[in-house]
Write a protein that binds this DNA or RNA. Structure first.
Lengths: 211, 211
DNA sequence: CTATTTAATGACTATTGGTCATATATGATA
DNA sequence: TATCATATATGACCAATAGTCATTAAATAG
């Protein structure tokens, strides 16, 4: 029964080849400017073939968004540990997020794209898959926060899952700010790291001056 | 010399008519699905005419983004006051932001679009205009925060302008979360207001349990 | 070796953003 | 009023490109 399996593998391989090509084209030219012919050329396949593996340009781009999320979450898993103190875990996640944005700027941009700009007018199956991709690692994050609440380190008036989502989205926002700071004159000579660390400082202690 | 003035007015009027039509089409169909012919029909003009007033579809959409920002900033100006306490001003801004998202959901979505999803591959003149639109009101916000720092209410280890940008972008992120919470099973039975108020709670006091 | 299933191709279609030669209306001039 | 000049509007047209599908090629089964 080795033939079906090999075919399966080859199909998966081809799918990945297409994704690799698409990624390079998207990252180089941007979503709008990249054409399916570009991608087909880069993948050394005909355009028709792309559509055997992905049903639209949008779906191709989504698949890359999912890759981005997977990489990020993988980085999280590596640094998170139930043994560490809650606040350290949160900081580690933050630092991993920063590393992600630095090491994979293109993936990061793709991720921000999907976090921020989906057109409520039409949510696709892919969107749902993307949200699902987030769920497991989010559960891990919630667990860590819940620990912190239980052992009295974190405030207990906000549920762990709300905290998780709020922190996540605040942080995404700040990373986006960091990556676009060149357009804000105020921030010209501030480093990305400074912005992000200040963000975490605020999360930790709040805005008020500590007596 | 009334004729040139009248012509000027008529031109401005037509520009606005086109924007109104574009807005309705964009809000109904979304950026991608809306066509220039749709907009021309709605405006009862030929497509060519649209291009006498706006040089591309993108620019049209931008102009609507600017409208959105203007409305929001106008709402801010109405609630901010140098006489109020800093923290109250911040809360007022937050509440205005929430009202904006509720009262003008379409403008809000447009704003989030521009905040989050610009394609670094090609920044247009319009982008710069959009960022400029933000600058004045941002200055107002910075001033308020600076007051808070000066009179010892707010922490003084982060500059007012960084604070302003960080708070702004965190809050945009959270509002986006609120508006998409239906896709997060965890948040199904949480209200938008609760999420946003919790966000401000965290900003005020931080994550740590107070003593 | 032949038949059948599966995969790949690229010419073709439909849609749509954007252009431009032409037409129309408006206002100035005499 | 008649004529010219200018500003504005039109819609047929063009180019680009996402997506399709009849045809071809390759792989596998019998």
């Amino acid at each position: 029964m080795g033939i079906t399996e090999r075919k399966e593998r080859e199909k998966e391989q081809r799918r990945n080849d297409i994704l690799d090509a698409a990624e390079r084209v998207f990252f180089k030219k941007g979503l709008e400017q990249a054409t399916m012919d570009d991608i087909a050329n880069k993948a050394e396949l005909s355009k028709g073939t792309l559509y055997l593996y992905f049903k639209s340009k949008e779906e191709l781009y989504f698949a890359i968004g999912i890759r981005a999320h997977q990489i990020l979450w993988h980085m999280f898993e590596k640094v998170i540990s139930p043994d560490k103190k809650v606040m350290d875990n949160i900081f580690e996640i933050g630092k991993a997020f920063v590393r992600f944005a630095n090491e994979y700027p293109d993936y990061f941009r793709t991720m921000v794209h999907f976090e921020a700009d989906f057109d409520m007018h039409y949510i696709t199956e892919q969107h749902k898959r993307l949200f699902q991709t987030e769920e497991d690692p989010m559960a891990l994050f919630v667990e860590i926060l819940q620990n912190g609440i239980d052992n009295g380190v974190l405030r207990n008036d906000i549920s762990a899952s709300q905290l998780a989502h709020i922190l996540w989205t605040q942080t995404t926002g700040v990373l986006k700010l960091a990556s676009t700071k060149d357009f804000h004159p105020d921030l010209h000579n501030v480093s990305d790291e400074e912005i992000i660390m200040n963000h975490f400082e605020i999360l930790k202690y709040g805005l008020l001056k500590n007596q």
